[in-house]
Simulated scan of single mutants.
Amino acid sequence: MPELIDPTVRLRTSFLAAVAEFHAASDRPVPWFVSDVDPAALTDPGAFAGYVERVLAERTEAGMRTDAGVPMTTLWWAEGNELLGRLAIRHRLTPHLERVGGHIGYDVRPGARRRGHATAMLAAALPVAAALGVTGALLTCDDANTVSRRVIEANGGRLLTVDGRKLRYLVPTA
C-alpha cells in the first residue's frame, strides 16, 4: 500500500525513472522539481545522496530554497521501491504563494496516474500539514485542471476565489 515517506536514497533508480517519465510526457508541463534536477548527474549515488540531503534540509529556515522563500517539507508517495509521486508542504505562504502555489503542491508520475494516488497522497499530507501548524491549507490549480479540482474537492476543499484562471481552495487539515 502506498505511503508518504521522507525522500530516501533507496528510491534513486525509481526517482530517475520518474523524472524521465515527466520529461517524456507531453500532456502537462514538466513540474518544477523535475526541471530543478540534472538526471545524468544524479545517476551517481553520492550525488543523489547529496540531492536527498538538500531536499530534507529545505524543511528549515537555514536550508530553504531561496526561490521558494519559505521552508517546505517534501515527501515522496511510494510503494516498496517505487516512487509514485511527490508532494511539498510549504510551512507558510508568501504573497506570491497565496496567489499561485498555496501550501501544498503535488505531482504523480505519468505511469502511475489515474489510480487515485493524488487524492490519497493529499489526504495523507493533511495531518502532516496540521502538525506543521497549517490550520487550513490553501491549494491552487488552473481552472482547466479538472483532475486537480476533483482531488482537492475530494479532500474537503472549499472554493474561495477564482483569480483569472487560478482557483483557490481552502482544505481543512484536521
Rank of each mutant, 00 (worst) to 15 (best):
A124M: 11
A57I: 05
R149Y: 07
P110D: 08
V128D: 00
G102H: 00
R92C: 00
T74A: 15
A130D: 07
A120V: 07
P2Q: 03
P29D: 10
A68S: 14
R113L: 09
A41R: 13
K166L: 13
L4C: 02
H91L: 12
S148P: 04
V19H: 02
V100Y: 15
V100Q: 15
R86Y: 15
W76L: 01
E21F: 06
P127S: 08
T8N: 12
T66Q: 12
A20Y: 05
S14I: 15
E153V: 07
D44R: 05
L83R: 01
P39Y: 04
V128G: 00
R113Y: 07
G85D: 04
P110C: 04
V55A: 01
D163N: 11
R115E: 11
E79K: 13
E79C: 09
G157N: 06
G111W: 14
A18Y: 01
M64F: 07
A17I: 13
P31W: 12
L87A: 00
M72I: 06
L83G: 01
L138D: 00
R149K: 08
F22W: 14
P31Y: 14
T140S: 03
L139P: 03
A129K: 02
A123E: 09
I89Y: 03
L56C: 09
M121I: 03
T74M: 14
T140E: 06
E58M: 10
T73D: 07
G85I: 09
N145Q: 04
A47D: 12
V34F: 11
V9D: 11
A112K: 08
T119S: 10
D6W: 12
A137I: 05
L139A: 00
A49T: 02
A41Q: 12
N145C: 07
R109Q: 12
V108C: 06
V100C: 10
A17R: 09
A112V: 00
R109T: 15
G164A: 08
L11R: 01
L84R: 11
D36V: 12
L97H: 02
R158L: 07
F48H: 01
L170N: 05
Y51Q: 09
G157S: 04
T43D: 13
G133S: 09
G46I: 10
R90W: 04
L84A: 02
L87Y: 07
P2W: 07
P110H: 11
G102I: 01
R150C: 04
N81P: 15
V30P: 02
P71L: 04
L139C: 04
E3N: 08
A62G: 05
G85Q: 05
G133D: 07
T66Y: 15
V30N: 01
S148F: 02
T43M: 15
R28D: 09
D6I: 15
L139G: 01
G80A: 04
L16V: 09
A154T: 07
L122N: 01
V37T: 03
N155M: 09
P45W: 05
T173E: 05
G105I: 04
T135N: 14
V52T: 03
T94R: 06
P110S: 03
R114V: 05
